[in-house]
Amino acid sequence: MSTRSSRLAARGMVAPSVVLLLIWMVIPLSMTLYYSFRLYRLLSPDRTGWVGFNNYLWFFNAPEFWQALFNTLALVGGVLLVTVTLGVLIALLIDQPVKGQSFLRILVIAPFFVMPPVAASIWENLFMHPQNGLFAALARGFGMQPILFLEQYPMWSIIGIVSWEWLPFATLILLTALQSLSSEQLEAAEMDGAGAFARFRYIILPHLTRAITVVILIQTIFLLGIFGEIFTTTQGGPGSASTTLPYMIFKQAIAAKDIGRAAAGGIIAVILANIVAYFLMRGLGRNLDA
């Protein structure tokens, strides 16, 4: 079905989306690019001018930046590792003939409905709080000192919170994929003498490849921009222990009111996102076909 007129119509119908997204990308991004080479501080608005790469150099020279870069990647990698691993295990478990499966599913997807500020505040106040949190109560119950989650292990805590938010998504995708695996294939493998582990390794896992790819791809898109959870809990602290790149940029803009530097940080973040995207697409793109 491709006649000249239908191809023409198709172009006309894709156009609005493309144009809108182009505007959405190009205008703000070029403004950011412009500011990134300017001296632009809200606290001293009369001093302006071109500063070359100074804003960028400031970032590269700030020890905080490398920490933030590491934290950003650790957050993405950590959450992916936790959600994919646990997601596979939970999906395998729920896929068994279990009583009340649909109600189970309702419980499992619940975290996905919780907006990031609420998720963060639940964990911060009701669980991780060193005086009143449930974890503290649990620790005291065992006669131990409560762990200072957000103070001593801020990145681990944030990875934990974000993993909880994204676990339902991973589980659900993997479960859906699992349910499309024909039981005949598994039975054939069993007839061929494959044990439970071999069945998982050689039949189930390959079947899940595409689903895992989708999980990684979509989660990365969202995880690179994680902001609300950090804003609500640690504010990037203590010090800069849990500062990610987006949060560092946010601090430059809102706390330091240095628009030029924030813009430079924004451009760096875009470049980072593109690098990550490039490797993702190269490494995983082919799994998406089929």
Partner: peptide, 27 residues
Amino acid sequence: VPGRRTRDLLMWMLSTKMMPAVAVMIP
């Protein structure tokens, strides 16, 4: 009406989602 570039276009659209919100916050 898929063309040769449909896939790239789709990937490009998704990649716009990778643009961190903070990067364009000020503008």
